[in-house]
Simulated scan of single mutants.
Amino acid sequence: MLNRNPHIIDRTRYINEMSALYNLGANEVIPEEYETSVEIFCRVLEKYEVPRERIDSFINRIRADGYEMFRSISKEPYCTTDLNMIQNEFITIKVPAGSPAAGRSLKEIGLREIGISLLAVNRESQVINHPDESFVLQPDDLAIILGSEAQLASVGYLFGRADGSQNTAS
């Protein structure tokens, strides 16, 4: 006996084809354009060390509302609510010669242990994105770091000069 009520899942290349496929009886339509965007966004969040369960929750919400947040301006602030990024700040800080951070690896200075992410370093006009823990900071590096205000304040001494001042440019 044939199923009189099949559940039809369809894949389409383009967003503008979704309505027609729903009208033809599809129960679910998966647009490649959106799924590609979701995957890219997922990988970016992983690079910024957003916890996997938060990424999965965000992706589930995107899919549950039929990708509506991609199709229109959302009234709900998905990113700031789900990712809790509003509590974090980006700062740019120069590594002065003689500072505790100069000449030491990220593992040695322990930024990640306290929840700070080093997103990129500009060294002699060359950008090094998301360096690993073996990366050694050098004098005059310009570091872009992410963390809460309290976390960033707690590591200010690492980027201080011998005279006790700090060189922060945010």
Rank of each mutant, 00 (worst) to 15 (best):
E68G: 13
I145L: 11
S74K: 08
E124I: 06
Q151E: 13
L106E: 02
V121G: 02
E53P: 02
P96L: 00
F58Y: 15
D140G: 00
A150D: 12
A97H: 05
I91E: 06
D140M: 15
E113A: 14
S57A: 14
I116D: 00
K107I: 01
N88L: 15
A97C: 04
I93W: 02
L106M: 13
L111S: 00
E149C: 00
A143L: 13
V127D: 08
T80N: 12
I128L: 12
S154A: 15
G98I: 04
R54V: 10
V136H: 07
N122R: 13
Y67G: 03
R61W: 03
E68V: 05
Y67T: 09
I109N: 00
D65S: 13
Y67V: 10
R61M: 13
E49K: 13
E49G: 02
G103R: 02
R71C: 13
R112W: 08
L106T: 00
V155N: 03
F70N: 04
G98P: 00
E46F: 01
I145R: 02
T81W: 09
Y48E: 13
R123I: 05
E133Q: 15
K47A: 07
Q87C: 03
I62R: 00
F135S: 12
T80V: 15
I62L: 11
R112G: 08
S74W: 10
S57C: 10
I91W: 07
T92N: 10
E133I: 09
T92Y: 03
E124P: 01
R63V: 14
D82L: 11
C42R: 14
V155W: 07
L119D: 02
E133V: 07
I93M: 05
A101C: 11
A120R: 05
R63I: 14
V50S: 11
I73M: 00
S154D: 14
I59P: 03
R123T: 01
K75L: 13
T81K: 15
R104V: 00
V95P: 01
T80F: 08
P77Q: 12
R52S: 15
S72V: 03
A153M: 07
A64D: 15
D141N: 11
S117N: 10
R63C: 02
N84G: 11
E149R: 07
G66W: 04
R43A: 09
T80C: 11
K47R: 15
N122E: 14
N129F: 14
I59Q: 13
P77L: 10
I109K: 02
R71Q: 11
L83D: 06
R52A: 15
Q87P: 01
G103T: 08
I93A: 03
C42W: 06
L45R: 08
A120H: 04
E76P: 00
I93P: 03
L83G: 06
R61Y: 02
F70P: 03
L111H: 01
A97Q: 15
G66A: 12
Y67A: 01
S125C: 04
T81D: 13
L118D: 03
L118I: 08
K75M: 04
E46W: 01
S105H: 09
G66C: 10
F70T: 08
D82Q: 07
R63S: 02
E53V: 06
C42E: 09
Q151G: 05
N84C: 06
E89G: 00
R43P: 03
K75Q: 11
Q138I: 03
E76Q: 08
P77R: 08
Y78M: 08
L45Q: 07
S134D: 15
L137Q: 04
Q126D: 05
S99R: 00
